[in-house]
Design a protein around this nucleic acid. Structure first.
Lengths: 355, 355
DNA sequence: CTGTTAGCGCATTCAT
DNA sequence: ATGAATGCGCTAACAG
């Protein structure tokens, strides 16, 4: 007994401790602490005082178990050390913090199994919602998504989404962003625009490709699939592919890349070969990575407003749990507008204001 | 009653549900699930099967309340949308994930009150540890830190630390990094090296300043406090200050900046004024931000190995909870070595390999 | 206005 | 090898 007491003393104080001290019951203490209905102002004050005096802190874990609300939400991204995702997460955290939610982050590193594992772990941890950017597409994942929905846990996709019934999404209009960028390159007088693409099983990359293609077609230029190259988002890959493109009999006079990193590689290679940017070849990227505006030759890119995307995703979640006075399913599709940032790498005529 | 049952059915299945189905008791189910001591292989298998069949998932919340271990750790940083902190967090997550820990992220945005608030919230959420990079120094915060320690919650500082008894830290040797960078500039023949500093109440910035100063003194050059300028880590600030430095009667022939962003500003201003880098003026930054190596004129910087810092911080935490067979306090001070990356912005003689 | 009771889901001690 | 009972800390329904 003494030992038991000793342990308790050295640990945290509970409502029972303060109840005992005041010769009242734990329920009363709880009520006083929560400003609950009718309670004598006297005891309320007394409880409050001794509570702070005993340095009482509510154990959120017990509350969570009791209420079924953990006040944690899970965020799953391919990687956190990417400016885009980190900024989205910043938006999510800043929006959810005032509402008392904690943000648990998980990385998949584009590993399908890790994604599934993370979903299950979050579910077991009883998160109140899952906000994620998917990394792959497969049937196994769909099972995971269904498991989430079956538990009535709000699921929200941002950026990289899957099309699933009953799931809200927050994305940007990648098609439009690519369309705008390509149209801009055409307006610069470019007639043969190559496209550095990425895994088109992922919707955002497919949409960027389609936007590019549509812009070419709409302008009456010839669409040439042979100068659309699928690669991964690495500077070195951009260089390699651009090297090959420049060796063609009919090399491109512009490059639209679905990634800023490959766009940078392209620029490096173009410079290395002695061509002038933007006079000989124009370049535009996608994502507005910080370095694109820092370069001496700043790089035209498409901004995805990741901060706003994170905020929106958080708000959609809040809406979903807020109006959840039953089993009402809210399915909301938010599409943010991309912003084309025209910079030096594609400004043949006049340098527009660098943003 | 019926209603009650209905609810339970639509929700998650517990060990009670599967116990009922098998006409055994919940305790047995629990034992079977946990590979606990002696249990009939028959029932073990039976339980396992019906468990997966009924789609049972352990409620980590209940386990947490029972065991006193939430399996969550809190990470507090000034901001997450910074390459450095995001990468540290990546390291932490990757190291802790295999051990079943979840990472809760909190941002302070350098707000002292937010920092305190976050600490309390994490404590109330019963996190098993707190890994943080402090944003300010004040007595109020010390109270918070003590609250953490009093609860026997492992506290680990990374990068921006406070000197508190019983707290482990993981840092880089900022003094050495600055010393190396400055020494390198001196080796390039620079004789008047300015320093763009930052709030020196924060230890890392003070150490960088001291390392710079010591290198100057050790080399026999004259130390001139008037070309040490304290500012904030913004490109624009770097430009402004550099402009003033260049207007001096006796302008510097090199700039060592405690931030890559102000270093970039310096470079922009130097270029704008028609000086040549590195011939006329050498520049070195600190942090190895991604853009420093992407620039056409790559920027010399000091790498802080944030990934390793995160991993180390996580490992120190694991060590702390692992050997915690009592109230043993482990205080570990890990100091990582900075790596000077010599690039074009300071290579007068020979361009070393760009890393 | 306050005390009693019960349950959130789990693991564990003590019986058997 | 299994059952019964208990507690982790809290809130809420139901008395009184």
């Amino acid at each position: 007994m003494y030992f038991y007491k000793k342990i308790r003393m050295s640990g945290k104080t509970t409502i029972y401790d303060i109840a005992k001290k005041l010769n009242i019951t734990a329920a009363t203490v709880s009520r006083a602490l929560n400003n609950n209905t009718k309670i004598s102002e006297a005891t309320r004050k007394l409880v409050m005082e001794t509570a702070s005096q005993m340095n009482y802190k509510q154990n959120k874990l017990a509350l969570a178990l009791k209420s079924g609300k953990s006040n944690n939400i899970g965020v799953i991204v391919p990687r956190i050390d990417s400016n885009f995702f980190a900024t989205v997460i910043r938006g999510i955290e800043e929006e959810l913090h005032p509402h008392g939610y904690h943000v648990i982050i998980c990385q998949t590193r584009d590993d399908k199994n890790l994604e599934i594992e993370n979903i299950d772990a979050l579910l077991n941890a009883q998160v109140d919602g899952i906000l994620m950017s998917i990394s792959n597409v497969s049937n196994e994942q769909n099972e995971s998504f269904n498991r989430i929905l079956k538990k009535n846990v709000p699921l929200i996709f941002f950026d990289r989404k899957a099309n699933i019934d009953g799931v809200s999404t927050v994305t940007i209009n990648d098609f439009q962003g690519a369309y705008d960028a390509t149209t801009h390159l055409i307006a610069q007088g470019c007639k043969r625009i190559a496209h550095l693409s990425n895994n088109r099983l992922i919707e955002i990359f497919r949409d960027r490709y389609l936007g590019y293609k549509q812009a070419i077609i709409d302008s009456g230029l010839e669409f040439d699939e042979s100068i659309v190259i699928e690669t991964i988002s690495k500077v070195e890959e951009g260089r390699k592919i651009t090297k090959k493109l420049l060796e063609l009999d009919n090399p491109p006079d512009a490059i639209f890349s679905s990634s800023d990193f490959t766009a940078l590689g392209a620029i490096q290679e173009i410079n290395a070969q002695g061509f002038k940017i933007p006079q000989d070849i124009c370049v535009a990227g996608f994502a507005n990575e910080p370095f694109t505006k820092f370069m001496e030759l700043s790089i035209t890119s498409v901004d995805q407003s990741p901060l706003e995307m994170g905020r929106m995703a958080a708000n959609v979640f809040l809406e979903q749990v807020g109006g959840n006075n039953g089993n009402i399913k809210i399915e909301k599709k938010v599409v943010l507008n991309p912003k084309l940032l025209i910079r030096e790498s594609s400004s043949k005529f006049q340098l527009q204001k660098i943003i």
